[in-house]
């Protein structure tokens, strides 16, 4: 395989891993705006081990997963108490704190970052994806998956029906952060260089976009979103300085046509978008029902 095809497949694979990891958290209805921080934690943890202690990358990846999971558990515990906007802000602040911490920490190179990590292979990336996919298939068919959905649909009803939602949400965020941390470790050892600014708000936003563009209903939706967004810059490179304009407009159009993302059912209750809009205009927003977002 040519280095080019390999580079593309590595990048796509890492992004798919990021999307799948994010999906675990989102499946409980909680949107994090600081997932790049888990990526950073994984990337730095693994890089420290491989560079400074010459650990093999697969072992370092496991440690990265554990460290990221601990951080994820803390965020998951807070997530339960917060609405969509406030969780978004808290997780965003968390992301900024992590970025700042790494930028100030001289052991990991401060703002210059760490350099010289190698070892990410297609086998490592795609076997990580395989593990996560197996986990997700089992999850979506298990009672735990149902519990996630229950929390997403109505947190209070979930509590009332006896679910121990604190433990479930903490677990979901920890698992999500672990996968994201592994993706970070793989990304670091592919890029060879990491700096704190690589894991800033832009990266956090990109992870959300993978998931939301693909659709949050099924995990493969998130994966498709990641693939599409990873190859778009390659397909549309010829757009040059029109690229960002087209890219932005893509989201605008998509959110009008398919607000649920590329993959997923259009609405929970009857009627296509047009029918519903007619109905809504007719009633002049008297009926401003909305999806519970908790």
């Amino acid at each position: 395989m040519s280095p080019y095809a390999e580079a593309v497949l590595l990048q796509v694979g890492i992004n798919v891993l990021l999307a799948l990891g994010y999906w675990i958290a989102v499946s409980t209805g909680k949107y994090s705006f600081g997932h790049a921080a888990f990526m950073a934690i994984g990337a730095y943890a693994a890089s420290m081990l491989t560079l400074n202690f010459a650990w093999p990358l697969p072992v370092a990846m496991l440690v990265a997963a554990v460290v990221a999971a601990v951080a994820g558990a803390v965020i998951g515990w807070m997530a339960l108490r917060l609405s969509l906007l406030y969780l978004a802000i808290i997780t965003f602040i968390f992301g900024q704190l992590v970025e700042l911490l790494f930028a100030q920490w001289d052991y990991v190179g401060g703002a210059t970052g760490m350099i010289g990590m190698t070892g990410t292979t297609l086998t490592l990336v795609y076997s990580s994806i395989a593990v996560v996919v197996v986990y997700l298939v089992l999850l979506t068919r298990s009672r735990l998956g149902l519990a996630y959905a229950a929390i997403r649909e109505d947190e209070r009803a979930a509590t009332a029906s006896g679910l121990r939602i604190t433990r479930i949400a903490v677990g979901a965020f920890a698992a999500s952060a672990a996968v994201t941390g592994v993706a970070g470790a793989l990304a670091a050892h592919q890029l060879m260089i990491i700096t704190p600014s690589l894991f800033g708000p832009q990266q956090a936003l990109l992870i959300i976009l993978y998931c939301v563009l693909g659709g949050v209903q099924y995990f493969w939706g998130a994966a498709v979103g990641a693939i599409v967004l990873s190859v778009l810059p390659i397909w549309f490179e010829w757009l040059n300085d029109w690229y960002m304009i087209v890219y932005g407009l893509l989201f605008v159009v998509l959110m009008i046509v398919r607000p649920q993302g590329l993959i997923g059912r259009s609405e929970r209750s009857g009627g296509g978008p047009l029918l519903r809009r007619l109905r809504r205009d007719g009633a002049v927003a008297v009926e401003r029902e909305r999806e519970p977002v908790g």
Binding site: M244, Y247, F251, V252, M255
Partner: peptide, 15 residues
């Protein structure tokens, strides 16, 4: 979809 208009306006910002 609570995320739809957030994403869409972020997209407009990019544009």
């Amino acid at each position: 979809f609570p995320t739809a208009s957030i994403l869409s306006s972020l997209g407009m910002g990019l544009v």
